[in-house]
Simulated assay, not measured.
Amino acid sequence: MPILKLSVIIPTLNEEECIAQVIQEVASNLQGKGFEYEIMIVDGMSKDRTRDIAREMGAVVVEEPRRGYGRAYKTGFEKARGEIIATMDGDCTYPAESIAPLMEMLAREDLEFITTDRFGHMEEGAMSDMHKIGNLALSFFTRLLFGRIIRDSQSGMWVFRKDALPKINVKDDGMPFSEEIKIEAFRKLRSKEVMIAYRRRMGEVKLSSWRDGWNNFKFLWHKRFRGPRDKSLRASRSP
C-alpha cells in the first residue's frame, strides 16, 4: 500500500522572525505519524533572511516574483507533491498541531476540503478590533451572497485533497483568494469548517484593514453578480 504524502504550503514575505519556529512546529507535529511530508515555502522575494532560514531548516523553497497571496498558493499547489495539501501562514498564528487531526478527519468523514474557524479559540490580542470587525463583516456577506454557512471566510489554514483542485475554479491572485477557494469548495466539494486555536502573530502586520477589506468586498460582489453575467455575455458573442 503506497504511503500517503502531505505537502504543507506556507506563503511568506519577510517572515524571518518566525519562520524557523513555524517550520520546527510543523516538523515536530508530523514526524512519526505514518506518512511522508514536505514543507514548502513559497516566498514573494523577501528582503530579509526568510528564504535562507527556511532552507537551513530543510524546507523546500520556491521563489515567486509575481506578487499576491493567491498567486503564491497557486504556485505552491502546482509544485506540491503530496496527495493532501495543508496551508498556514509563516507568522506563528496557526496551530501546526491541528494538521494531523484535520487530515484524519478528512479521511474519516470522506471529505475533500476542510477550512478552519479562528474565532472560537482566538488568543487575546491575536487580531486587532478593526481586523476582527472586517473579517466578521466579510464572512457575513459571504454567507448572505452565496448561501454557504462559513463563519470565517478569511482563514488561511485549509487541509484538502489535491485531486479536488480541478473541480473548482479559483481565479483571484490576491487576498480574495482565501474567500474564493472556500466559496468554490462549499459549492462543489464535500467540505467542512472546523474550529482551531489562533495566536498572536510575530513580525510586521502586512494587511491593510480598509484597502484589503474593500478589495475583498468588491470581489465578493463581482463574483456573485457580474461573473455569471459576464459568462453569458461571452457566450452570446461567440460565433
Rank of each mutant, 00 (worst) to 15 (best):
M1F: 08
I3E: 06
I3T: 11
I9P: 09
P11E: 04
E17R: 00
E17L: 06
A20D: 04
Q21N: 07
V22R: 05
V22E: 05
V22Q: 08
V22G: 04
I23E: 09
E25W: 01
V26I: 15
N29M: 02
N29W: 04
Q31E: 15
G32N: 09
F35T: 00
E36R: 13
Y37N: 03
V42R: 00
G44N: 15
K47T: 15
T50M: 04
R51T: 14
R55N: 05
V60Y: 07
E63N: 11
E64P: 12
G76W: 14
E78M: 07
R81L: 13
R81Q: 14
E83A: 06
I84A: 09
I84Q: 09
I85P: 03
T93D: 00
Y94H: 07
P95V: 11
P95C: 10
L102G: 09
L102Q: 12
L106T: 12
A107F: 15
M122K: 12
E123K: 15
E123I: 15
H131I: 05
A137R: 15
R143C: 11
L144C: 10
I150G: 01
D152I: 04
Q154I: 13
Q154E: 10
M157Q: 13
W158P: 00
R161K: 14
R161G: 01
D163E: 14
D163R: 13
A164F: 14
I168C: 02
N169S: 06
N169T: 10
N169L: 07
K171E: 05
M175Y: 06
E179D: 00
E180I: 02
I181G: 01
L189G: 06
Y198R: 01
V205A: 02
L207K: 00
S209N: 01
R211W: 06
N216R: 08
K218C: 09
F219R: 03
F225D: 01
G227A: 03
G227P: 02
P228E: 00
D230C: 01
K231H: 08
L233Y: 07
L233P: 00
